[in-house]
């Protein structure tokens, strides 16, 4: 199984644009260490729409060049320590966004469109610092009505964790439709799952409605408790104690390195 995860990690080449999901949607924490071991640097992360533990650990390991995100935090454990330190040191480039702008960029990519227009943002410093976002006057109005254009976000790779896939590579994502949006927009999608089922998820209307078709899925690997210490919807809760332990340890670079070396890789 570990070799499966290492095989998946080989896709993560230096300099790729990597999309990762919000902490409650299904984070493939099992992939974090294989990616770090592979030591692919200069990653451009896209957090959909916010980042957490996995993002903090990839930054702490020195693999990240830039982060596009609406926020990075460790939930109840507060701020993300290695992200915050990297911001203070100027070690990573920031593309601060707002949640619907990330969704809009993925939606544009999903449709093969160059951009998606979006309300809000005008007058914010987010817009001021985003040279890639443009403001135009609504061409369908009689004049005026400025609106922001968000360019398509086309990640090279999306990685997430889900409860199950079938033997045919279809993945059950339930109502976490942002996972589908990420996969639609990405050139490569790598999925870890709790288990593989024999019957096709497309065989019944009930399961088909919550399935991401294999068309969009590059590789699937089994990783039981693969979101830990995050929880996985419908499966197991978040291990807040472990996240708090990480948050305390990672306050310093030394503490972070120590945690990553010595902490267990799987739940007890």
């Amino acid at each position: 199984m570990v070799s499966d995860l290492r095989a998946l990690a080989k896709y993560v080449e230096p300099g790729v644009r990597l999309a990762l999901p919000v902490d409650y949607a299904g984070v493939s924490m099992a992939m974090t260490r294989p990616i770090i071991e592979r030591n692919a640097r200069n990653l451009d992360l896209v957090c959909v729409p916010t980042g957490g533990l996995q993002v903090d650990q990839l930054i702490g390991a020195g693999l990240v060049r830039s982060v596009e995100t609406s926020a990075v935090l460790l939930g109840e454990a507060g701020g993300a320590p290695r992200f915050n330190a990297a911001v203070k040191d100027g070690a990573i480039a920031l593309k601060d966004a707002t949640c619907p702008a990330i969704h809009a960029g993925l939606m544009a990519a999903q449709k093969g469109s160059p951009f998606m227009p979006m309300r809000g943002l005008i007058g914010s410093d987010l817009l001021h610092h985003r040279s890639d976002w443009r403001v135009i006057d609504n061409p369908l109005a009689d004049g005026g009505d400025p609106i922001v254009l968000i360019p398509a976000i086309k990640p090279d790779i999306t990685i997430f964790h889900a409860p199950m896939a079938d033997r045919f590579g279809n993945v059950w994502i339930g109502r976490r439709r942002e996972l589908a949006a990420m996969a639609y927009a990405s050139a490569t999608t790598l999925v870890t799952v709790e288990r593989i089922v024999d019957e096709s998820l497309l065989a019944s209307e009930m399961s088909a409605a919550g399935a991401l078709p294999a068309l969009y899925v590059t590789e699937v690997a089994v990783a039981p408790k693969g979101a830990w210490p995050y929880g996985l919807w419908g499966e197991y809760p978040t291990d807040t104690t472990e996240i708090l332990r990480y948050a305390r340890a990672a306050r310093s670079a030394v503490g972070f390195a120590d945690y990553m070396t010595n902490a267990q890789m799987e739940p007890a």
């Binding site: 729409p49 609406s70 701020g79 911001v87 966004a97 309300r119 817009l127």
Partner: peptide
Amino acid sequence: RWPGSFGSAY
């Protein structure tokens, strides 16, 4: 640094 703007700018 605080976490970020979340959905506020919309």
